[in-house]
């Protein structure tokens, strides 16, 4: 059975949503991981959930990136473990150096909470191998989601195929008019070079059940399940 750990920081507020999807929708064995602990309790998959860790003090995700649990998560990720950072979790992954770039205040300065379409750029990854749709409909809810990286960094991301999701139309057209927050190249989610760490602004855990209007997000969790099951068989 897959064991999933959901990290809890003071100010996390999507931790229970992530726990719910992991445990009750995906049927993973699921535990919360407190930020002050260093023990990952034998988890195969770590979710850093959304919210406002430490009230977004200093910079979004900055204080959380210095917490004891992040030391263990860095080691886990460097050993190939699967880590998914959602929204504030994405910000934490960037601040901790597990992913490159940064997230700035939305270009229009507004907190944006709505469903968006994101195009899946690569289905040969641990997080997207079960995406049967080219475009996923998943909500965003953030104030600081404008992805930025310097030119050289952007070139590397694109060359290595690390951009996993882009804001698009429902038909998959990527254009400025479908970019909600001003992100470079319409970037909604990126992985590290090795592909085992994903950060994304949209919230797949809020779109994993029909009752919530979309279950496209579940494809991401299914992909993780598929990847880990294959890995266990090997």
């Amino acid at each position: 059975m897959i064991k999933c750990g959901v990290v809890v920081f003071p100010g996390s507020n999507c931790d229970h949503d992530a726990y719910h999807v992991s445990k009750h929708v995906m049927d993973f064995e699921t535990v919360f991981l407190w930020h002050k602990d260093e023990d990952l309790k034998g988890c195969d998959f770590i979710i850093i959930p959304g919210g406002f860790s430490y009230g977004d003090y200093l910079r979004c995700g900055a204080i959380a990136s210095f917490s004891p649990i992040m030391k263990s998560i860095k080691k886990f990720a460097n050993d190939g473990g699967l880590v998914l950072g959602i929204c504030n979790g994405f910000q934490i992954l960037l601040e901790s150096g597990l992913l490159t770039g940064s997230l700035l205040r939305n270009k229009n300065l507004k907190f944006i909470c709505k469903f968006v379409d994101i195009r899946v750029e690569n289905t040969d990854t641990p997080f997207t191998n079960s995406c049967t749709k080219k475009v996923l409909r998943i909500p965003i809810a953030h104030h600081d989601g404008c992805y930025f990286i310097d030119k050289d960094g952007l070139r590397k991301l694109e060359e290595n195929g690390q951009v996993l999701f882009r804001y698009s139309s429902s038909r998959g057209e990527v254009d400025r008019e479908f970019n909600p927050n001003g992100s470079l190249n319409n970037i909604a989610g990126i992985t590290n070079k090795e592909g085992n760490v994903l950060g994304m602004m949209p919230h797949p855990e809020r779109a994993s059940e029909t009752v919530l209007g979309s279950f496209d997000g579940k494809m991401i969790f299914k992909s993780v399940l598929n990847f880990l099951e294959k890995k266990i068989k090997e």
Binding site: L58, R59, A62, F66, L94, E95, T100, G101, S102, L104, F148, I149, D150
Partner: peptide, 8 residues
């Protein structure tokens, strides 16, 4: 290391 993010 802490007070600024050298990326931005």
């Amino acid at each position: 290391d802490v007070l600024s993010n050298p990326v931005i």
